[in-house]
Design a protein around this nucleic acid. Sequence first.
DNA 1: CCCCTAATCCCTT
DNA 2: AAGGGATTAGGGG
Length: 268
Amino acid sequence: MGTEDVCNTGLVLGLNIDGVEEKRLQTKNYRQQNLVCFEFDQLPQMEGLETCLTLSLVPKKINKNKAGDQVQVVHQSSSQSTVSSFSNPNHDITSSNRERDDFEVERLSLRVSDEEDEGSAKKKLRLTKEQSALLEDNFKEHRTLNPKQKKALAAQLNLRTRQVEVWFQNRRARTKLKQTEVECEYLKRCCQALKEENRRLQKEVHELKALKLASPLYMHVPAATLTMCPSCERIGSGSKSPANGPFAVVPRSHHLYDSSIHQQSPAR
DNA sequence: CCCCTAATCCCTT
DNA sequence: AAGGGATTAGGGG
């Protein structure tokens, strides 16, 4: 991976001015490409700010990329220096003119007068209880919203439609994940039960084989005529008459069963 | 093109 | 570490 890749962050900016729906900051998905990259303060933060003049996109934090390259970046408050130190010799970022240029552009071009930037570090949005509750209520009603609903809800919550959209996306994703976990748990239990059942049946086969050896009469009952009582899991011959022939013998795990025992008296 | 999911990041608690 | 808001890639209509 060369420096060419490194610098190709494909940064596209769209400024949200005076309530115009925000354009998203788009960067290449460097995560999946093992790129050493910066992360910049996110655009949505500018929302509702006086988008005056210049926005300073400052590298936000240090991160390790997938290849484990340590990229050290110091978050400078607002418009200060943005220089960073890189510890990976394989990624000689400073040698890339293009990258430097891009970075320079980013550094110089924009600046936010940022009410949310008090204390320099950006605060992550946290929905209020009321907002969450209302979102939940809406989610209960419909798992997806059409654009109109989205807009209305956003207005009601004093959020951007994009935020509502994202909330619903995440909600769906996490609901699904939970559902999957529950199903997984259930399947595990089923599996466990089946294993148990299998063990039990194996054992029964063993016992029946032993029984067969011990009592040749047993062979006179065709296997197909054996039935299992669903309520007590006893084996019966299908015969109506109780105490029938070889079934007087009762194996330990499964006493042999005559289905007539459990039959309800027929309603006539 | 829009919207969705899946994967992931990363801030906050 | 968990919870959750946000971003990104990729796919379907």
